[in-house]
Amino acid sequence: MKDVHRAFADTLPVMAGYVVLGIGFGILLSAKGYGAGWAFAMGVIIYSGALQYVVIDMISGGASLMAAALTGLMVSARHLFYGISMVDRYKGAGMKKPYMVYALTDETYSLVCSAEAPSPRRYHRYCFLVSLFDQAYWVGGSVIGGLLGPVIPFDTEGIDFALTALFVSICVDQWLGAKSRLPALTGFAAAAVCLLIFGREDFLIPAMLAITGGLTLLRPVLDKDDKDGRAAHD
C-alpha cells in the first residue's frame, strides 16, 4: 500500500501534464477525423507523446510507411539513453520487466532513474506502478480529448509547463545529490550547443552523440570518483 501511495503522489505532476497533453492530442486527432478509439489505440500501441503528435502531422501529410519508420527513429532515438540507464536498475524485475521496458517514457524515466527504495523488490514494484499510472493518465487524457472534441471547460494554456517544471525539479535534486556535477553539465551544455547549431527540429541526435562522446572522455575521472565513493560507502 505504501508503494502505491508513494507512486501515486510522485506521479501527480505527470498526471497534470499528461492529462492536458493527452486531451490536446485527442482533440487534434479527432479534428482529423479519427475519434477516441484511435486515440486509445495510439496510446497503447505507440505510447510516446512526442511521436504521437508527429503522427498526426504525418496523417495529414500522407507519409509513406518508410517515412513513418524513419521519422519514428529520429523522434524516439532518445529512448536508447533511458534503456541504457535502466539496464542494471531493472535487473531482476521478473514478470513486470517487459511492461516496464515498453512503458519507459520521458516522464516515467525521470521518476524511476533516480528513485530510491529499501530493496530491489520494492524499487521494481514502485517503478512498475509509476509506469502503469503514467500510461493511465496519458491514455485517459487522450480518450477524453477524443470524446470531448474542441469543448474545454477552462483556459489551460501553459499547464503543460508542469512537465518542464518536473524535469527542472529533478535536475535540482540531482545537482544537490550528485557526487560529480560533470555529467549534468555535459548533458546541459551539449544539448544547448547542439540546439544552437542544428536547430529545434534536429538537435537531439547530435546532442546524444556529443553527450556519449563527452561522458566517454570523462570516464577516467568519473569512474574513479564512483569507485572511490562506493568503496567509502562500503
Binding site: 548533458g187 553527450i211 569512474d223
Partner: peptide, 28 residues
C-alpha cells in the same frame, strides 16, 4: 552480461539526460 562501459554510462547518463530533457522542453 552488461559490459563495464555500459554500467558506467548507466550511472552517469541519468544526470546528463535530465539536462538534455530540460533543453528539449524549452526548445521552442
Amino acid at each position: 552480461r552488461t559490459p563495464g562501459y555500459i554500467l558506467y554510462l548507466g550511472r552517469v547518463l541519468p544526470y546528463a539526460t535530465m539536462g538534455m530533457l530540460v533543453v528539449y522542453c524549452l526548445r521552442n
